[in-house]
């Protein structure tokens, strides 16, 4: 049981690392949104599932409710994250930022 928890937690941290490194390395605003919006979402899903599993170790009604609340956060983030990403990309488009194409210098 502990092994599953640790495995999921480390996988989530790996995706979080990819998100942070991607935000630093990608060349422009639009391509930075790819790691930021979605690697973070999957990392949050994996790590929160592992924490909800760990929370069920000492089983009781209160622990079950807490784990369900953690899963509620996951559901909420899965609904909210694409909307937030779309709002940011919309702000960029309306402000008139041109997308980076191959051959330009990085911004």
């Amino acid at each position: 049981m502990d092994i599953v928890v640790i495995l999921f937690l480390f996988a989530g941290l790996l995706f979080f690392t990819g998100g942070a490194v991607g935000i630093l390395r990608f060349p422009d605003f639009y391509s930075r949104l790819h790691p930021a919006g979605k690697l973070d979402t999957l990392g949050l899903l994996l790590s929160l599932i592992s924490l909800a599993l760990f929370n069920l170790h000492h089983f009781s009604l209160g622990a079950l409710l807490t784990s369900l609340k953690i899963l509620l956060i996951v559901v909420f983030v899965f609904l909210a994250s694409p909307t937030a990403t779309h709002a940011i990309v919309d702000a960029g488009v309306r402000a008139g930022l041109a997308p980076w194409t191959k051959g330009d210098e990085r911004r």
């Binding site: 790819h34 919006g37 979605k38 694409p82 909307t83 990403t85 779309h86 990309v89």
Partner: peptide, 15 residues
């Protein structure tokens, strides 16, 4: 459909 496109990385719905 738009949210699914945004959730699969590599693609973002702009408009």
């Amino acid at each position: 459909f738009a949210n699914s496109i945004t959730l699969t990385p590599g693609t973002i719905t702009v408009d």
